[in-house]
Amino acid sequence: MFTSVFIACALLGAIVGFFAGLLGIGGGLIIVPVLVYLLPLMGISAELAFPMALATSLASIIFTSSSAAFAHHKNGNIPWSIARKLVLSVAIGALLGAVIAGMLSLKALTIIFASAVLILAAYMFLSIKVQRSVTLPTRWGLQSIGLFTGVLASLMGIAGGAILVPILMYCSLSMRQAIGVATASGIIVAFFGALGYVVIGFGQSDLPPWSIGYIYLPALLGIVLTSSLFAPLGVKAGAKLPLSYMKKGFALFLMLVAFKMICY
């Protein structure tokens, strides 16, 4: 089973990496629904498959977000005075999200994920432009934003950029700065979210071999190895393709995935 999952997730990682480079989207929106359907085919129960998909997605994001954050730091896109104010609350939120996920039923997790994906897909499809409208909140305001982002991102198995970027742009940050802060925060979300899923997963006696808590190593290794190789290809393709139409097409795809998961 190790080999089968590794090969399947290597193919998944190639797709995730390509679309991440092409459209600038987080891989979790693709990884989670695919693993939710793939893992039961490998003999893993549906009840375990969803938290394992979330945990494995977050673990893979640690690597991709770290690379992206380093690039943003080199380009001066991360205002660390703002990012530092989000670190603690994002970490707490990510841990809390993992704990909440461990308490929820499969149906509840599915509805939360699908509903959030529908909202994000609608936002992407409509190409909503966020106008800078209010000044940046105080430290407590930023920490509240970080807590909300951490909880929801951990429950969805994503880095949280799709949540944090529009909020920060509304709070008068430029797009580059918002993306830079979100990328740096994404490392924290992924690390502490994955850590939370590891801790709560140790109480499960029926996890498959090669699991660390809810993180499934064959899937993680396959995704990480190929996603980093195919992301540059997506970036090159993005320079030649009409991205506005592709983003809308991808948003429609996400809506279909969300509807399918609601019926799961």
Rank of each mutant, 00 (worst) to 15 (best):
M1V: 07
S4A: 15
I7W: 11
G13M: 04
G13H: 09
G13R: 01
A14T: 05
A20V: 11
I25L: 13
G27T: 05
L35T: 08
L41Q: 12
G43K: 06
G43L: 13
I44G: 04
S45R: 11
S45M: 09
L48G: 07
A49R: 07
F50T: 10
P51L: 02
M52D: 00
A53S: 13
L54F: 06
T56E: 07
L58A: 01
L58G: 03
I61C: 05
I62D: 04
T64H: 05
S66P: 01
H72M: 03
K74Q: 11
G76E: 06
N77Y: 05
N77L: 00
N77S: 11
W80V: 08
S81W: 01
I82F: 06
I82Q: 10
R84K: 09
S89A: 08
V90K: 06
A91F: 06
G93D: 00
G93R: 02
A94M: 00
A94C: 03
G102W: 06
L104F: 14
S105C: 08
L106W: 13
I111C: 13
I112K: 12
I112Q: 06
F113H: 10
A114Q: 08
A116K: 08
L120M: 14
L120F: 15
A121P: 02
M124I: 03
L126P: 15
Q131P: 10
G141Q: 07
I145L: 01
G150N: 00
G150W: 07
A153Y: 00
A153R: 05
G157Y: 11
G157W: 07
A159D: 06
P166Q: 04
C171G: 00
S174M: 02
S174D: 13
M175A: 15
Q177A: 11
A184Q: 07
A184C: 09
A184F: 08
I188K: 01
F191D: 01
A194F: 06
L195W: 09
Y197Q: 10
F202M: 15
D206V: 09
L207I: 03
S211L: 04
Y214K: 08
L221M: 11
L221E: 03
G222C: 10
I223V: 08
V224M: 02
V224W: 07
V224E: 00
L225Q: 01
L225K: 09
T226V: 14
T226M: 05
T226Q: 05
S227W: 02
S228A: 08
S228M: 14
S228F: 13
A231V: 02
G234W: 05
V235A: 00
A237M: 02
G238K: 00
A239T: 05
S244G: 13
G249Y: 04
F250Q: 08
A251V: 13
C263R: 15
Y264M: 09
